[in-house]
Lab assay of single mutants.
Amino acid sequence: TGEEYIAVGDFTAQQVGDLTFKKGEILLAIEKKPDGWWIAKDAKGNEGLVPRTYLEPYS
């Protein structure tokens, strides 16, 4: 299990392996990579890379 984050903006996948999401979606951070791209999972179970700058902790 990971930590929940809320998307603060829309993001469209730029390449294969990225995860597209919309502002307000809750994402589960699976792995926090030091380069600023995290592996996350959305509510539908889709998994991919997301930019850290689009996420804020969800409580």
Rank of each mutant, 00 (worst) to 15 (best):
A13S: 10
L28C: 10
A40C: 15
N46Q: 10
G17A: 05
A40G: 05
W38C: 04
A29K: 03
I39M: 11
G2L: 14
D18A: 13
K41P: 01
F21D: 01
Y58F: 11
E25G: 04
K41S: 08
Y54L: 15
Q15N: 14
K44Q: 13
L28H: 09
G17R: 05
E4D: 06
F21N: 00
D18V: 15
G48L: 02
T12E: 11
G45C: 06
L27D: 00
D18E: 15
A7E: 01
A43T: 12
I6G: 01
G36S: 04
A40Q: 01
D35Q: 04
I26M: 07
V8K: 10
W37L: 07
L19D: 00
G24Q: 02
E56V: 14
Y54F: 13
T20W: 04
E56F: 09
Q15E: 10
K41T: 07
P34G: 12
L19R: 02
E25Q: 13
N46T: 08
T20F: 04
D35G: 14
D35S: 09
L19Q: 00
F21A: 02
V50W: 01
Q14F: 09
L49N: 10
F21K: 00
V50P: 03
G48T: 01
A43N: 10
E25T: 08
V8D: 02
E56S: 10
A7W: 01
K22G: 06
L49T: 13
T53E: 15
G24K: 02
T1W: 14
A13N: 04
Q15L: 09
A13Y: 03
P57F: 08
G24D: 06
E4G: 07
A40D: 01
G48C: 04
D42W: 00
I6L: 08
E3L: 11
E47W: 11
L28W: 14
W38V: 06
G36N: 06
A29W: 03
E56I: 13
K33I: 06
T1E: 13
T1D: 13
K44H: 14
I30W: 04
D10W: 05
L27C: 03
W38Q: 02
D18Y: 15
W37A: 05
A29N: 02
G17K: 04
T20C: 06
D18L: 14
A13R: 07
S59L: 13
L49E: 05
K44D: 11
W38R: 00
T1Y: 14
L19P: 01
P51Y: 13
L19T: 01
K44P: 03
A40R: 00
A7N: 01
I39T: 07
V8C: 09
K23C: 11
G45R: 02
E3W: 12
Y5H: 04
D10I: 03
V50I: 05
L49F: 14
T12Y: 13
